[in-house]
């Protein structure tokens, strides 16, 4: 994955597109996820959709810093097809909405996880998971670990 400088989520304008990040979910990563959440369903060699969304979000964490007091207030996830362990995936994210109210920035991050057609074991290209995360962050509070110039 690329690791651009981190910037406070409050500083991104509406329409900002994050750098695409390519990643692969291994069997070990999926097993660690399932063990952590306690899910004992049999997924075979497929990736639980919420695992893809959660682990895909990690790809954005290299770019986004959250000020103290930020809250994840909403989540939408849409599964478009089953993902296989080991598929090469690309995460594309953008700021779909941004507004300010009473000292807080309300930011909706929209992202999709796309299977790499070239390495897609099922032969199906295209979007596998679509998701929207709503984050509420205090305006005017710089995260402790943002790069110079970042933060609100």
């Amino acid at each position: 994955m690329t690791s651009p400088a981190r910037t406070s989520i409050t500083a991104f304008p509406r329409g900002h597109e994050f750098s695409p990040a390519t990643f692969t979910l291994t069997a070990a990563e999926v097993a660690a996820y399932l063990d952590a959440v306690g899910d004992e369903n049999d997924y075979g060699d497929t990736v639980p959709p919420l695992a893809a969304a959660a682990l895909g979000l990690e790809a954005l964490q290299g770019e986004i810093a959250l000020p103290e007091g930020s809250l994840h207030t909403g989540q939408e996830v849409e599964h478009a097809r089953t993902l296989q362990v080991g598929e090469r995936l690309t995460m594309r994210g953008r700021v779909a909405q941004r507004s300010e109210r009473q000292g807080y920035v309300i930011c909706v991050i929209e992202f999709e996880i796309v299977a790499d057609a070239g390495l897609d074991r099922t032969g199906e290209a295209g979007v596998a998971v679509r998701a929207r995360s709503t984050i509420v962050a205090p305006a005017g509070v710089a995260p402790a670990d943002v790069a110079p110039g970042g933060g609100a």
Binding site: G38, D39, Y43, P48, P49, A54, L71, G74, Q75, T82
Partner: peptide, 29 residues
């Protein structure tokens, strides 16, 4: 997302692969 995973587990447990290929969630924390 950890707590939300319980809903994913519940739906997968009932609907199997159909959940993985067609499920939709919209929630508030």
């Amino acid at each position: 997302m950890l707590v939300l995973a319980l809903i994913g587990e519940m739906m997968r447990g009932r609907f199997g692969d159909a959940w993985s290929r067609s499920g939709k969630l919209k929630v508030r924390f």
